[in-house]
Design a protein around this nucleic acid. Structure first.
Lengths: 404, 404
DNA sequence: CGCATTAGTTCAACCCGTTTACAAATATGT
DNA sequence: ACATATTTGTAAACGGGTTGAACTAATGCG
């Protein structure tokens, strides 16, 4: 909305406007920016002085070769503001730091603390410290962070519900706990939603404003992006498609709690189906899919059945949210053998099926999503928010200083 | 984003900020507003002078009874800016004008021009004229409008697709045509989405930020509100749940084009089912439902079957978008006899079903939704947009004047 | 009727951005 | 090599918008 109209706010706005343009347009001179934005040259110089003093921009060269005086070229100091992202899974935590230009300056993977709860919170905080050290930047330069977690984060109550795999987080005010430990503003996202966001940032969803990401592995889950926003639902449970009435009778008491679709296409279901057809016992799902190349007709039949269920699920998803594309991920969903069968199935039940592709980022999708989400939040805070974004501290009798 | 920081913009911002506060806080004095907003008294008086000169605010009384000098109390001139809304159906067009306080100042219903196309466009334009006359306001005071239409409006291409019931609109750039005729900025919305918006504005969705509205009549359709925004989908086809894989095999070639769910629960399906059970022929669906009170076991069985399908559809919708509530509307959906059966069905397939209620606005829901949507658009244009919102014309050697 | 209190105006001062003018630096043409 | 056109960047004067302080106006209260 419109910001405060006080005189002091005007400079704050100019600072934001100029910094944003430098970020968007890359290395640029003051005169050039003055022409583009309409801000006068004297003001531009003054603004650059403040931004440079505060460490936001730095000289990155001189423009030469053209007629006239050579220009000082400035660019944003990428490490002035960093964003922390972490994708917390039941077994692994992936974490990284990204700078303002979108470059990942440090990344790591560790095993999740099996004790869960506060141990995981502490572990995440340590990761932030480690990464800052690794990237050789001040810890205080991390201004925002996003944590991806399995489960539904209810923004209204601030609590994380339905958390599988990690002990001691069910019903926890995880955001507040993390903020207290990390010392910067934290947002929480569902792991599959984050994977969708990641694919949009630099994966199979690049350039799309509305699409769905379906993670098909042990279980099944979905993240939907609609008009560039994550579809969250009233309790943060949107995309929990395990319960879709597909593959089994939804009114059957056996599927009442576990979810019809998941009992039809989850890893356990695939194994069960394979064994029921007389296939080898205790075989990993990956191995079952591998056997397709050995002309295992049982594996082929099982996969066909699974694909028909996934196809119907995609039909349902398209009926409700109309995605431009469906991206398949997860250990099963990202198999080419599954994709081709799903495409076939979808062609059999939809007159105008969406494009269907495989995740480009694999297991890193979730992490990249948290980085994208965190960067977006920081961007909004710096450039879109009302009032004082704390870009450059108001000088009250002193020098300009740190960020809020 | 942040607006232009030029000096001239500062006053524009102050105007917007002040006008918005007056709208939100109702009748208020200048001194009071100065205290609340932090804007100084001299500036506040100057701003009020401009707003009054331009007709945005007017004196509405004096504050007396308190110690000290009595204050002039101002409020927004409600008819300074009006919004036009129209819900265009196959047989009827409902249209209305709403002022800035949200009060409907004129409303009408007419039969839709059967010739369709340009005739309907002209008809809508005439309605705007008629309503302005009826409300006794200048036609130019209508600053924005929203038209609800059946079909999917693809914002990317600007064209309306899949239009049933109205001739000559398929594939049309309907927004541009309407804007040309109406002379103010127009937005297009799907009729069911508009009904959902209407229920949120002043119906069964009041106070909810995420819910679904399901229209069950001749066909079946849905509008979803997620985080106060309409879920549109990539091609504006979100909520077209006629094709949900419920009630029939989605891979059956007979339901390939018509949609599994719609062939199971549409009016035609209900009649067919009833007749197949040996019920009276050529009976209106409304009459079939009426017969429940006469202990017609065939009607009961048909309705139970339909409710089970709707229940499974709601399960699917909840799995995908997690609404806080499902509102049933349309000629069939708004029947109490249907609601109770659907509630029963849902309890049989969901551990934690959403609340399910009947539309409070009936056939006016769509119209109210267009008014809500149009008001929201105007609000954004006036108060949230970048740069010059044209609230008060820049004085260039003359008096302040009209709006853009 | 005087006083405390609140509403609203006048005026000088300040901050920010712009315009204009000018100094500094660089490529180009002769 | 040198003048010239061109561009960058700074200095000074100016103007618009907001503010704080001082002031006038109006009202309730004792």
């Amino acid at each position: 909305m419109t910001d405060f109209s006080s005189v002091a706010m005007m400079r704050q706005n100019t600072l934001r406007r100029v910094l944003r343009e430098i970020l968007l347009r890359g290395p640029i001179s003051r005169a050039e920016l003055a022409r583009i934005t309409g801000v006068s040259k004297p003001t531009m110089s003054e603004v650059f002085r403040e931004l440079e003093e505060d460490g936001w921009v730095q000289v990155s060269g001189r423009r030469q070769g053209k007629v006239g005086r050579s220009a000082m070229v400035y660019s944003v100091a990428p490490q002035r503001a960093l964003v922390f992202g972490a994708d917390v899974g039941g077994t692994k935590i992936r974490a990284a730091l990204v700078d303002m230009t979108g470059e990942i300056v440090a990344e790591t993977v560790v095993a999740t603390e099996p004790s869960g709860g506060d141990f995981v919170v502490a572990q995440i905080a340590d990761l932030a410290d480690d990464l800052a050290r690794e990237a050789d930047v001040g810890r205080s330069r991390i201004l925002a962070g996003t944590i991806g977690l399995p489960g539904a984060f209810d923004a209204a109550t601030g609590r994380l519900m339905m958390v599988p795999n990690i002990e001691g987080l069910e019903g926890s005010a995880i955001r507040d706990r993390l903020e207290a430990r990390l010392g910067f503003s934290v947002s929480i996202g569902n792991d599959v939603n984050m994977a969708a966001k990641g694919e949009q940032w630099r994966g199979a969803g690049a350039g799309l404003s509305s699409f769905a990401f379906i993670a098909l592995g042990t279980g099944i889950g979905m993240g939907v992006i609609n008009e560039n926003r994550i579809l969250s639902g009233a309790r943060g449970a949107a995309g929990e498609i395990a319960t879709l009435p597909v593959g089994a009778d939804p009114y059957d008491s056996r599927t009442f709690r576990s979810g019809a679709l998941e009992t039809a296409v989850g890893s356990a279901a695939i194994k069960d189906r394979y064994e029921a057809l007389g296939g080898e016992r205790d075989l990993d799902v990956r191995r079952i899919i591998d056997r397709l190349s050995e002309d295992d007709h049982r594996a082929a039949r099982v996969l066909d059945e699974v694909a028909r269920c996934v196809g119907a699920a995609i039909l349902a998803v398209c009926a409700v949210v109309d995605p431009a594309r469906v991206i398949l991920g997860g250990s099963i969903g990202s198999r080419q053998e599954v994709l081709s069968r799903v495409r076939m199935a979808v062609a059999g039940c939809m007159p105008a099926p969406p494009s269907i592709t495989i995740s480009q980022l694999g297991s890193r999708a979730g992490l990249l999503g948290t980085l994208a989400e965190g960067s977006e939040n920081l961007w909004n805070e710096l450039f879109e928010a009302d009032g004082d974004s704390g870009l450059v501290r108001q000088r009250a009798g002193g020098e300009a200083g740190e960020v809020a």
